[in-house]
Structure formats: structure tokens, C-alpha cells
Nucleic acid binder design. Structure first.
Lengths: 354, 354
DNA sequence: TTGTAGGCGTTATCAT
DNA sequence: ATGATAACGCCTACAA
């Protein structure tokens, strides 16, 4: 399939024009081995003149490396995946590092249907390393990742912890982040603090629940199951959860929400119901996305370093790929990065608001 | 570099186990040519047992096709590119189609520094087709795209028009979208309508300006240069532009803004300055991103089908790649998709608001 | 310092 | 219906 109108310059032609062998062309272009400056110049000139660009494909094939860092993303048809702050930030971070290292970024969409087969990406030589995003603790997923680990492929799970496994991962201390959030609410004088959490198949939801409990405990409060709500991180689910909250609004004076989007849904519902702002519970959300500071009132939120998580994960993996020597050392001592989150206080939980 | 702990099953082993030749293994796995059902079963069994996965890399090399659809994105270090609704939506759309076609999606970050060299992606066989996003009309860019066209590579420019060229493109009728927006403001009784536009190197900014002018003209209004502002699509730039607007707020009773983010910045400034909502000009923004309906007041906005643009672009290109036969017909008759935008009216421009 | 030649894992053509 | 084999474009010992 020759799509182009012109024939692509071949290495052979370059060699001829430069009056050297093809091997020499390769060496010059890769800058390996000793070579006469004159030869170098001749080759470079010829290559430039012919507009020769070596086939990355053939090169990959010969070197047995794809040059790609794969990123697994949840595939949710029509779900506007990228709209989520979470993935956007991570991908930006990953992208910047990948670029520095001269790798390419291959997007891989996980499907809910098919059984996961992460290994295949390596077997098929589509990727040299893999970052798994949006993973959740389900039997199939665990199994698939375990296989990756058994085969000692270079991969990293981001923002998800699998209890009982020792998968290499870059995660955030969501328990501590949540503890701080709820503790802040307590110090703001809240006595009955509700919690709108995400699905517990995400370890960060579990962590947040622990942090919530811990903070209540430390503050001498009891956990009231009535004040626990669950959503799926979407705005709509926050909106719906808010309906159930309304009947408790006279007592519930604080609310911790597992992400900004759901919190926005909650605010939307409150506003629609014409609940006066002074009657809102004090709210702290999570993620500190762009949206947090434009809501009314602006949302206090726990800032999560998604961009940095991306850079850290990518850097770690590409380092391995670069010096394939130290590889085994890495695998014997799997990574366990745990980053810190930071509470950003805004009007939604600020005493001065009322 | 053998990263895995186990040896990868080779086609040869499969052939041995199945008691056939390697060629037969290939044929079975690719489902080409006639074959005995029995042979087929034997091979499939052997392959399954050994966990054999053909090397996509070697396959690509042999077939001379990468299997990748490339997407060029603006590279803005640390700029949290993906946070932008615009790219997120398009990538989601592209991703869904790419997946259907069994291709992979390769993200390519353009750099402001280096001279563009889109051709290289093809020459290097990194991609079979290319979608160019976030392009702007600058000499280097024009030149680079022209080369792609001359070489008849399958590519598509999205949401950007190059006047005087005949590049294949998928664009939106921003002139009409803007005309409707401003016309709506006029019908809402606005007499002095400001316009916060984006940089004119984006054709959509030029289009919006035409639409704005056209609407004013049709409504019998004059264009007042004092009411023209320029930002760079960021919230911050909207915030800054708002400062300059404030002195005109007594006369300026309408405002058209080229995207939601800038409009949010404007609202933010107004709010900070404690300008009473009743004194706000009636506002219509652009993009109709998620954020538009959560601001206070909710933003009227021109909805742009970004997701669909992505799907359309990807579908077109992959069709070409699939049936390489019709290729030339395609190139002789370059695509020119022009999608429609749609005004969504909300409180920010609604007469009932005041 | 440079040329020669073998190998990488497929596909595809040509025999059988 | 299946087996043998050239070709794909590059890298890399090894030889000169």
C-alpha cells in the first residue's frame, strides 16, 4: 500500500549517493561506533538531500522494542472519558515525560466486555511498558495484573491499591487526605458530617472511608450510617444523592464528597431546591479540579497531584526501559510511591462564609 | 532485552506442537486461504496452550503498516493540555472509532520550538494516518501541512481552516454559530454587544468575528471597536479582559465570548468586583462545555460537536487505510466536512433572569 | 574506520 | 490444503 505520491527515499539510495555502505549510513544516523568526520558529513548530506527518514517500524523490529509506552484507560462508550479531570491531568503528565524520553504514547482502551489481557500488549510488542489507569478491584482485573507481574513486565498501577498484592504502584494517601478534610470540618464546628463516597471497588474509596472514620473517631464523633451516601463520581450521581440528603439537612451540618463533580451535582440540586445558602452543610470535596473554584460557593477540595503521578509513573517505567540492565533489581523491589494530598480551603467550608 | 521472566512462545513452537509448518500457523491465525478444519483446530489449540500472541511489531513490519492512527496535539509544557474540554472530547471520539477499527491511537505532541515535520511521522512509519488538532494558521504550519498534502498522505485537519488551501478538513460553521449567538443577544434587546474573541491565528476566531459582524449588520447595529477584546481562551485571559470591560459596563448590555473558559473568567471578575448580577451584560459563550451549566448564572453557550468531529475524522481516515484501493479517488476529491453548531440558551442571556 | 552478512518474526508467493 | 522460502528495513557482530 503505497499511500504517498512519491517514493520514499531508501537507505540504499542514501548509501549510494554518499558512496558508502548501508551499514555506515546506519552508524552515522545512530551516532554509534567510530567514524571519519568526512564520512559522517557525506552521509548526513545525502540523507538530508534525499529526505531520508529511517523507518521507526523496522528499527523497532530489529531492536525488538516498540518505543511505546502504553496507557490503559477505561473504555466507556460515549462517556466522554477524557472530560474527566482525573485522566486529563495524568495523561498530560505522562505525555510530557514520554516526550522527553523519545518514546511515544499509545492509548489503549480497556473494554468492559472482554476479559482483560494486559499481557498481550507486551506479547504483541505493542508496548515496552504499561501504565494502568482507572483500575478497580475486581477478580478479572486482579488476575490480569497478577499475570503481568508474574511475567515481570514493566508496568505500574496508578491511583489504585490492591490489598494483599505487591503490585508496583503510584498512589496517593487518600486516607490521610480524607482525614484532614473531615478534621477540618470538625474544627469548623460541624457535628454531623455526611459523606458522599464513590464505589468501594476503587481502593481510593475505601481509603477515603477509613480517613473519614478516623477523623470522626479522633474528634469524638460517631459514624452515622444514615449520613453515608454512594455515587459513581458523576455529576448526575451527586445530584441524585443530594435528594436523599435534603431530608437530613436540618441536622447534617457538614459534608465530605469524594470528588468535585459529585459535589457540583449536589450544589446544583440544592440550588434548584432553593435551599438558602446559609442552610448548606459546610462542604469539602475532592480532586481540586478547575471546577472547584468556579462554583458558588467555591468548593473546598483536597488537591490530588494527578499530573505529578503521571510524570512519576512514566519516569519510573521509562528509566527501566532505558537501562534494561538494572531491570531485575527493579522487579525484586517493586515501587510503592505514596504521594500526599493537600486540603485547599475555600468558601464552601469556610466559617466566614455564613 | 528480555524483560519477561518467561520466554515468549514463538510461532515455531506452535507449529511443532500442532505438527504443521509455520506458514500454516500464520494462515490459521489470520484466517486466510483454505484449510482443513482439523488443522485449524490443532493450531488454535497449540497456540492457546502456549499462549502464543503474534508480534504486532513484526506483522506491521512485514505488512508495511503501523496500525496506528496518529493525533497531533499542541505541546504546551505543564499546561495541562487535556484539561481542555476541546481536546478531551475530540480524543474520546477518535478513540472510540479507532478501537472499532482495530487500530491504535498514537499521541504526538507538537513542539513550539522545532519546525514542524509532520511528514516524518509517515516516513518513519509511525502512523498510517494523521489527525491534526489545535492547528493554527502560521507560515510553518501551512508549509508542513502542504507537504503532507503534496505527498498525498492520508491526514485531516480538524477545527481549523486554511484559506486559500484545499486541505482535507473537518470543521464547524463557526460563523453561523456566532451569528446566531449575537442575533440572539440582539433579540434579547441588547444594543451594545461586546465580543471577547480568541487569537486570530485560529480560523475559528476569524469565523466568529465574521458571524459577529454579520449579526450586527443584520440587526442594524454598528461595530464598535471599543467593545472588541482579545484573550487566549484561558480563564485567566477572560478574567483580565473583564477588567477592561468594567468601565463600559453601563453601556455594554450584551457580551459574546469565544469559549466558556474565558466567560468563566469574566464572571469571576465581575463577582469579585461585586458587580450586581442585574448589571451584568447578557452573555453568550461558546463550546457548551460541562462548565457552562454550573456557573452562576448558567451560561448560554454555542454547542460544538467536538466528539462527533473526532469520530467523523477518524472514520474517514481509517476507511481510507482499510481499503487502500480507493485511496486515490479520495485524494482527488478532498474532504470538507462542515458541521453545525447550536445555540443553547441559559440564564446568562435569558430575559427572565433579571 | 568501514564493509559484509546474518538475523529479527511476519506475510506472501510459489511449489507441491 | 500445506510446506518451503524470499522479502521487509534495520542493527550488529565480525571481518577486513
Amino acid at each position: 500500500m503505497e499511500m504517498s505520491g512519491f517514493t520514499i527515499a531508501t537507505r540504499k539510495e542514501v548509501a549510494e549517493l554518499a558512496g558508502v555502505s548501508e551499514a555506515t549510513v546506519s552508524r552515522v544516523l545512530n551516532g554509534v561506533g567510530p567514524m571519519k568526520e568526512e564520512t559522517r558529513a557525506k552521509v548526513l548530506f545525502a540523507a538530508g538531500k534525499l529526505g531520508y527518514v529511517p523507518s521507526a517500524l523496522a528499527r523497532s523490529f530489529a531492536k525488538n522494542r516498540s518505543g511505546n509506552l502504553g496507557v490503559v484507560l477505561p473504555y466507556i462508550p460515549k462517556a466522554r472519558l477524557f472530560s474527566s479531570y482525573y485522566f486529563s491531568e495524568m495523561l498530560s503528565g505522562i505525555g510530557s515525560i514520554v516526550r522527553e524520553h523519545g518514546y511515544d504514547l499509545l492509548l489503549l482502551f480497556r473494554s468492559e466486555q472482554e476479559q482483560q489481557e494486559y499481557e498481550s500488549f507486551f506479547r504483541a510488542q505493542k508496548v515496552d511498558a504499561l501504565i494502568i489507569l482507572g483500575s478497580r478491584d475486581e477478580p478479572g482485573e486482579r488476575e490480569a495484573i497478577r499475570k503481568l507481574q508474574d511475567a515481570k513486565y514493566p508496568f505500574l498501577v496508578v491511583n489504585q491499591h490492591f490489598e494483599g498484592e505487591s503490585f508496583p504502584e503510584v498512589d496517593v494517601d487518600h486516607e490521610e487526605g480524607s482525614r484532614q478534610a473531615v478534621n477540618h470540618l470538625i474544627r469548623q464546628g460541624c457535628n454531623r458530617i455526611g459523606f458522599l463516597n464513590g464505589p468501594l471497588s476503587y481502593s481510593n474509596s475505601v481509603d477515603r472511608l477509613s480517613g473519614y472514620q478516623k477523623a470522626l473517631e479522633q474528634g469524638g464523633h460517631d459514624l452515622t450510617p444514615t449520613y453515608l451516601f454512594e455515587g459513581n463520581f458523576s455529576r448526575r450521581s451527586g445530584y441524585e444523592a443530594a435528594e436523599k440528603m435534603i431530608e437530613h439537612l436540618t441536622e447534617m451540618d457538614g459534608l465530605f464528597v469524594a470528588n468535585d463533580r459529585m459535589a457540583i451535582g449536589v450544589l446544583q440540586k440544592f440550588r434548584e431546591q432553593h435551599i438558602p445558602e446559609v442552610n448548606y452543610p459546610k462542604i469539602v470535596a475532592y480532586d481540586d479540579s478547575d471546577a472547584a473554584e468556579i462554583t458558588v460557593p467555591p468548593l473546598s477540595s483536597v488537591r490530588v497531584p494527578f499530573y505529578e503521578m503521571g510524570t512519576i509513573a512514566a519516569r519510573k517505567l521509562l528509566q527501566i526501559c532505558d537501562d534494561a540492565v538494572q531491570t531485575n533489581k527493579w522487579f525484586d523491589d517493586p515501587v510503592r510511591e505514596l504521594l500526599q494530598a493537600e486540603l485547599i480551603v475555600r468558601a464552601s467550608s469556610d466559617g466566614t462564609r455564613v
